[in-house]
Design a protein around this nucleic acid. Sequence first.
DNA 1: ACTTGATGACTCGTTTAGGAAACTTTTCCC
DNA 2: GGGAAAAGTTTCCTAAACGAGTCATCAAGT
Lengths: 204, 204
Amino acid sequence: MEPVQAEETGPLTEGTEAPDGEILGRMIRDARKERGLTLEEAAKAADIGRSTLSKIENNQTKPSFEIIRRLMQTLELETPQLFVQSAQSDISGRRDYTLKGRGEHQETATYDHELLCNELTSKRMLPYISTIKARDVAEFETWVRHRGEEFMYVISGEVTLFTEHYRPLHMKEGDSVYYDSGMGHGCVSTSEEDAKVLWVSLGV
Amino acid sequence: MEPVQAEETGPLTEGTEAPDGEILGRMIRDARKERGLTLEEAAKAADIGRSTLSKIENNQTKPSFEIIRRLMQTLELETPQLFVQSAQSDISGRRDYTLKGRGEHQETATYDHELLCNELTSKRMLPYISTIKARDVAEFETWVRHRGEEFMYVISGEVTLFTEHYRPLHMKEGDSVYYDSGMGHGCVSTSEEDAKVLWVSLGV
DNA sequence: ACTTGATGACTCGTTTAGGAAACTTTTCCC
DNA sequence: GGGAAAAGTTTCCTAAACGAGTCATCAAGT
């Protein structure tokens, strides 16, 4: 009933938007119910009126970006679904592989990196194997840091991972760690041979 | 000058939103100029008024979600930056580690999973080590698939990775592969011992 | 020099969003 | 079943969004 009403009051181009308002409203209602929140609780958490939320869920209003943004955060909704028709969700058939030792080399003073699966340029995770040449944290002039998250797995040897805010972490083959890469971090080998680790890095 | 104006006309909470409107406006203007579009061209492409676009860029209005969405698409702007800014960028000091063999076990008919760094519940990447018990692709009743991307590294043994759209990929220790996990995929061991692989999975 | 056209910012009238309050529906308990 | 409370929807009013048109500025051409 309400979608029909919206179509009558708007121009034709608005008619084509109506499905999106429905989808958005349904998405928000589903998320709210999943979390067991009432209209009032969710509205309060997002700092909007409960009547506003009702109207959004029932596709009876075109909400501002700010309100949607606040709702997304409150309901911990994933954002890309809202922009569904973007190029990103259309790309779904990529594959690239790297044979052992055949990645693309990048050398720094402290690490010897081997970038993996590098034919794929638009991948969101960046995997690379590093041989840790550093033996002393003093070899790092400054903390390395970049926004996002990182996972590390020790392939061989032993290392100590230094990060801000935590004690150094001693790790050996098969151990793994996950951390926010916004913290300064650095890794040194503590085994006889230079350790090898696999890093997977994810930006913002 | 305009931000000061906005603060005077609104309540205090609006004052705290003003930086976001500025950032948004700047982001949109930068993207538009990058693409060499005039106000008029971009507005036309997004089906909004050019004065509206000017006001958005100058943080003189709180645009509707629909308008922002259309602008994002027109200017091919990445969406998460608009939302993730607050919650996620505030969280920046997490770390969790898993010693070898100490992950959380999850068994299926075809794999024996060991979830890593599982104390962190809100991490975007999901790393896990899997022992591949499957020996024949027929053991998979259907393709496994989920939106997002996946990286796999062979820790030990040999496997064949089957995905839709590609020939089977034979891999051994040290080899790695990256693929869109929306494609059906499955993995079988081809070595005598059940192979072990490290997967890192990233949703949408 | 002046003229023209492009560009971005501003103005103003119309429409609609958003929230408080009122109303309606649903749920829960006796 | 009835009654009360909780939950959701609708109404009404005010402020602001939105876009067509206007204004100001700048650059290019004659």
